[in-house]
Amino acid sequence: MSEPSLDQLERWMMAVVTHPKGSASGIESPQACSQIPVSVDEIAQVVLPSKNLTSIERLDIYADMYRWRLVDILTEEYPTLSHLLGKNAFSALAEEYIALHPSEHYNLAALSQHFPRFIEEEGSDVTHREFAAEVARLERAMEEVYDAPQKDPVTSEEFEKIPDEVWGEVHMDLIPALELLSFSYPVDEYVTSVRENRHMDIPDPNPSWVVVYRNDFTVWRSGITREQHHLLTELRSGQSLGEALMSCAKLPNVDIGALSGNLKVWFQNWTGNGYFCRLR
């Protein structure tokens, strides 16, 4: 056999050590054979044995580390989902995910960007799939908010400078480090209980809304109402405050009186929590 080029060798090794069933299966995979056509029996033509380890055992060191490392990262990023599904089931799903969506970016935080959708649509044998997918979506949002771009929030003094007559036309930009989520289950409550080591049965469906945001470089979660979620979503989409409120008023079964009565407190809290980075 002629010596493989550097490119062939790297593509071969990548196919071998990232194969879901380990190096021996990887060597005989079409991806590996298209680069270097060797069988397991012939592997010493590519990788030499050491005094103590066979060629396959040496390749398996890299193959094992590939799986362990990436599964560990997903487990750290999704502790509640791991708790919900159980360690073994979660690890199996994580390995299935890695095989389907291998990492393409040097930033490991990008590894799990498709994981919530994978849990919802692709993963095999996901118990409590709908609830699990919502838990995954919340935990992914926390990860994204943790790293999101930093914008200094506007202060309450800046709000107070806005003349009463122009309030309706004001546009309020939300900080990048803020995610608005809506769920069919009380997901935030469940995540909190798991993170506080309190037992909670898998809840029955019940709509919930959550804002995940970063304030003073700490990530927070807060349950919000349907109206709050809608108002903030409209503001994020670029609507003026007046347009956003009009849209809110059209929600089914909305209590207009309560909505208008709560607005001042809501905006005081949101400003205090640093939700907005620009008024225009």
């Binding site: 593509r11 990548m14 890299y62 590939y66 291998p102 393409e104 970016h105 490991l108």
Partner: peptide
């Protein structure tokens, strides 16, 4: 290689 990252030092 080939846009796949193994996050290891090969």
């Amino acid at each position: 290689v080939a846009r796949k990252n193994g996050h290891d030092l090969y």
